[in-house]
Design a binder for these strands. Structure first.
Lengths: 198, 198, 198, 198
DNA sequence: ATTTAACCGAGACGGTACGTCTTGTCTTATA
DNA sequence: TATAAGACAAGACGTACCGTCTCGGTTAAAT
């Protein structure tokens, strides 16, 4: 990740915003066209029409570049507009999440990064720090919590919410259907509803 | 994966079981010591004291070797002995799953493979075919289903069962505590219990 | 320099003589076409149609390759056939030397190596060890010594013989004319002739 | 080479003499410490505490800088004070030459430049134009010529004079001893003495 | 007993990405 | 306008690993 608060009075040629954008776009394109494994630092530089050193100057690994390239897109994509009814709110969010993970380009990048994080300590920290999924999940949970008082702590509730979708996408690579998403939402509602008075 | 039903009347020197074991052990050791990324075909061969061609003769990628090295261990590790009560049965399974994914060596291998599967088509198929987690989950679900009639189709129920744990381990790398696992089991029970008569 | 006495019982794929020749020829060609400075290890490998590692496996520097490529040619080129008269013998040798240093391809390589030796310790030793000029000079000096009894030790006599030509070629890059070579030979003869009885 | 007679009415900030000196000293130091090959334009600028562009503005190559840094020192070092006797005059000069080439820092630079000149056309011309050795040699030859009437044209005589020393220093890197220098002077005297009347 | 076929180890082969280095140029703010 | 600083595109450096090929040697079944 690059330092955003730069000393405005520092000497020397300033960083080229043009080169930065070219690299980020090259990474996006290459991921879609060639896949993560075939994407190399060398290839990124060439595709961006940028010197190799320039890439290494600002990013250490392709994971870092990819993260910078996709985080803002990811956040945006995951936003689902609020609904009055908890059930529709949850289904709407689960649909956004599923679409993001299984169809979107930023989701492709995210999946690749989560994959890399499994066997690279530094990528793990990077992805954890970027915290792509939580904010949107927390929003939804905050909205429905008043009506579902048995909901556990947000951290655990988040896992209950997104876990089943992750399981499908990361493990089986067959995204759940709308019917399944509705069933998941219903299950959560049943689990989190106030217990019937005995 | 290697062909196990070999023509017993083949001519020539038979495959060396010694070499095979040496490779599988080398892969296990290297994964634990160096990590998946630093593990190379060349390194595996050297560690195993085996010719490089011998490795390539029987496996195409390090993912294949790793899979062969960990599947049986994984299956064994995931087995949790049946309990009378559904709640204890589910908690017991979730504990095994958590331990496997976050502590066991075979779990480390599995996580690495799932990671690689996110950006490698062939590894994806390989892992899908090996189907490490499902069988044990299906067992538990089959045991508790009679007492939890609202449980959906096994595929979806599996995602509900293992998804939250996956979310924790693959995304946050902080395995859930026993208390959290209990809360998850309780939530599933509430979700899958017979609906109260209106 | 490569080891010539190879263990006949060594294992593994034997060194490719084809690749070796391709590299030596590539070096010869590149030196003539591009010059020493523009000649790179990478360029040599590409020109030879050989892997870069293969070049590094057998030679450490381009100087080493160049030396191996030119030594035998150099020796051959410097041979001048014996003459009865010392004067003609010396002139003949000086002509060969001049031609070698100023016209021959192997001479071009030799000059480049001597140049590199001025600012690279290891090249210095390499060139010294190859000992390109001395043998031929020693031959001539041995032939004429009986008739020129005042000739000093061979080492010093060699410097007297080849020094003036080197001075011209290395410093001024204007090879001496035949007339000048004859004058040099005459001067040596006068210097090395028996002193007149007092 | 830089233009020394600058238009005194030029506008803008004048060239920094401080920077110029810093660069020349940096080059001297680096040559002695790291050697010619390890000496880079970047390294020179850093060592001099000078911007890289400033170096490129005034010199094209490190050879140019080195030449400017050493020529005056070289000339001075090569001066040998006149002696009455030709023999002592020649020996004295050969000693200066040997010391310069084999011990002095400016001599080290000169050798490096002569080396580079063997595989770089522009350095060749630069060194030829600087003409470091000739003037001092011509002085000595002019002094002794009256007493050695058989001496050939100065150009050739220069090669006879300095050639053997060059051969030793550039090829063998073992500077001649005083005894050998004396022998060389004696040989020249014998070669250049008036021929005895028949 | 010999031949044949497939295995074994070792290690060289042509390729290619790695991350670093230097080159010469360009673009800032400062003097 | 020269300066120090430092980013830029380009490309060579030497190393590592890729997957293949080619040796000598071993081990069994088929001749």
């Amino acid at each position: 990740m690059t330092e955003s608060a730069v000393d405005p009075h520092r000497r020397g040629r300033p960083r080229s915003e043009e080169a930065r954008q070219a690299v980020l776009e090259a990474v996006d394109d290459l991921l879609a066209e060639e896949g993560y494994a075939a994407m190399t630092m060398r290839g990124i530089a060439e595709r961006a029409g940028v010197g190799r050193q320039t890439v290494y100057r600002w990013w250490s690994t392709k994971a870092e570049i990819l993260l910078e390239a996709c985080v803002s897109d990811a956040r945006e994509q995951l936003h689902s507009r609020p609904r009055a009814e908890p059930r529709r709110d949850l289904v709407s969010y689960l649909s956004s999440l599923t679409a993001f993970l299984s169809e979107d380009d930023a989701g492709l990048a995210f999946r690749a990064l989560v994959g890399e994080a499994q066997h690279d300590e530094t990528v793990r920290d990077l992805v954890a720090q970027a915290d792509v999924l939580s904010p949107s999940a927390h929003e939804v949970l905050a909205r429905v919590r008043p009506k579902l008082p048995a909901m556990p702590a947000t951290a655990l509730a988040t896992d209950q919410l997104i876990g089943p979708v992750l399981s499908r996408v990361l493990l089986r690579h067959t995204p759940p259907s709308t019917r399944e998403l509705t069933a998941l939402a219903d299950a959560l509602i049943r689990a989190w509803q106030p217990l019937p008075a005995p």
